[in-house]
């Protein structure tokens, strides 16, 4: 199935892309998707994603513009829009 990924703030800069489409197996969870993205971007997202697809502090994940309670339990569906961005601040 195909998932549309949107990157914002620091992860946009680290990944070098704003949007991309990723193929994932049917029944993938959001955590599995994050682990796949970590590999797809050669570890550039390692400051925000652990090897098992868990977000590090400061990473925000939205599925269809809603933050899931748990990435491990969040099953993805074909055509879902997943946004990754980091919390930022002022200055």
């Amino acid at each position: 199935m195909q998932i549309e990924i949107e990157y914002g703030t620091q992860v946009r800069v680290a990944s070098g892309v704003t949007r991309e489409k990723i193929e994932t197996p049917e029944g993938s969870t959001a955590a599995e998707l994050l682990a796949r993205l970590l590999t797809a971007h050669d570890g550039a997202l390692a400051p925000w994603i652990t090897a098992d697809g868990q977000p590090r502090p400061g990473l925000l994940v939205f599925i269809n513009d809603q933050s899931p309670a748990s990435l491990q339990n969040a099953l993805l569906r074909h055509g879902d829009h997943v946004a990754l961005m980091t919390l930022v601040s002022g200055g």
Binding site: P57, L87, G91
Partner: peptide, 16 residues
């Protein structure tokens, strides 16, 4: 709720 601890990858100075 969004980040219980300071994000370690955040830098105080940034582009804007």
């Amino acid at each position: 709720c969004l980040t219980p601890t300071p994000p370690t990858a955040w830098r105080r100075e940034f582009p804007v």
